[in-house]
Structures are given as C-alpha cells and as structure tokens.
C-alpha cells in the first residue's frame, strides 16, 4: 500500500473541517450510528484512521463518503465532538474536486452534475427537472425504465399538485447578482482548496 505523508496534512488544511480528524479517538460510535452502515466500505472511524495513515487512494477512491445520508446521528454522539457529518461531506467534496471520486458513483454524479447546476441555474430547486435529469442520466432507455418504475409515485404527485407538469422554471429576479456571488464564492473556494 502506498503512503502519502503529505495527504493527511493537506486534508487537515484544505478539506472542510479536516483538521478535526486529528482529534478522533477511534471509539467507533460513529460507525455504529450510520443508517447505511453495512454499505460503507470504510466507516467514518476507519476513513479517519486511513487519512492519518496517509492512505490517499484508499480514502479518495472509496465510495464510502457517498453513503452519508446527512442524518447527523454521529455528530451528536461523538465523545470528542467531531463535526463528523461535515468532515465526511468534506472528504466527498475533496475526492470529487481532486478527481479521485468515481464519476459514475451515483450520488457523486447526482450531487455535482445534476443537483448543483440545477440550483445555481435559476437560484432555486426545480424538482421536476431534477428528477428527469436523474432518471435520464444513463440515456433514454434507462430513463424510461426508471420513469415507468416510479410512474405511480410521479402520477400521485402530479394529481395532488405536488409536482410541476412543466419542468422548466424561471430564474429568481436578482439572478444576475446571485450568479455573480456564486462565481466569486467559487473562485475563492477553488483558491482555498488548492491550498493557496
């Protein structure tokens, strides 16, 4: 296994809340708290230990961080008060930005390629468009199949006026300013993530 001694330092400095990883006492409370626990290749506890051991590839290529449902169970239970949810989110983001995360990992793809462009494209979530883009991300055939599987739910939502029959939505009034704000924030974020 390859060790990368600069990896831990970089995570402490540039991954969101990453410096907290130093404080973990490896008790495993977080691992026992995850709703998707059995589906994590490495539990949060293990991820943190792997970061400290410099196992860059093992951490960043793992699908584990994408198993976080944002339930915040771990965060309120950790005896060392680590902001675990945010550390895990941070590692997912770090892996995505540095190009290690599997681009086909479904939550990575949904969050970075579909969800984020959806909200910054108009200023608000367009639920109908979001669902369509997710279903059709693997092409027309897969989209129709998934759509048919979910057609009863979708129909129910449409009938009860909880899904917009027209997936397009307008931009917020102050969109120009909003977009400029996001662009500036992204510029600063990119600098910080590069360790500048």
């Amino acid at each position: 296994m390859a060790y990368d001694l600069s990896f831990a330092q970089d995570v402490y400095k540039n991954s969101e809340m990453g410096h907290w990883i130093k404080m973990c006492k490896q008790c495993g409370v977080c691992a026992g708290s995850c709703p998707f626990g059995p589906h994590w290749e490495y539990s949060p506890r293990q991820l943190f230990q792997l970061v400290r051991a410099g196992k860059k590839e093992e951490v960043l290529k793992s699908h584990s961080m994408w198993m976080c449902t944002s339930c915040y169970n771990c965060i309120v239970r950790c005896p060392r008060s680590l902001p675990i949810t945010h550390i895990v989110h941070g590692l997912a983001r770090y892996a995505s930005v540095k190009g290690y995360a599997d681009p086909n990992q479904i939550t990575n793809r949904f969050a970075t390629q579909i969800f984020w462009p959806n909200i910054v494209g108009t200023g608000r979530v367009g639920e109908a468009m979001l669902t369509m883009r997710l279903y059709f991300a693997d092409g027309l055939g897969a989209g129709i199949k998934r759509g048919l599987e979910m057609k009863d739910s979708a129909l129910g939502m449409l009938m009860t006026k909880r899904l917009n029959p027209i997936p397009l939505r307008g931009k917020i009034k102050g969109y120009a300013g909003f977009a400029a704000m996001i662009a500036k924030a992204q510029e600063l974020e990119a600098k910080r993530e590069a360790g500048a």
Binding site: S70, A111, T112, F115, G123, I182
Partner: peptide
C-alpha cells in the same frame, strides 16, 4: 422577497463551503 435555495443537504458536493454558505448569506 426573491429568496434563493438554501443549498439543501446535498449541496456540499457541488458547492463546497463558501458557495454553499453564501447562498444562505444572501
């Protein structure tokens, strides 16, 4: 008037910290 999305629980991956926090700040 003219609020924007809060960035939701999944916004961290595409947005990172600052873009995400800026959305609430606006």
């Amino acid at each position: 008037d003219d609020w924007n999305c809060c960035s939701a629980s999944i916004g961290y991956a595409g947005g990172g910290q600052l873009p995400r926090l800026s959305m609430s700040a606006r």
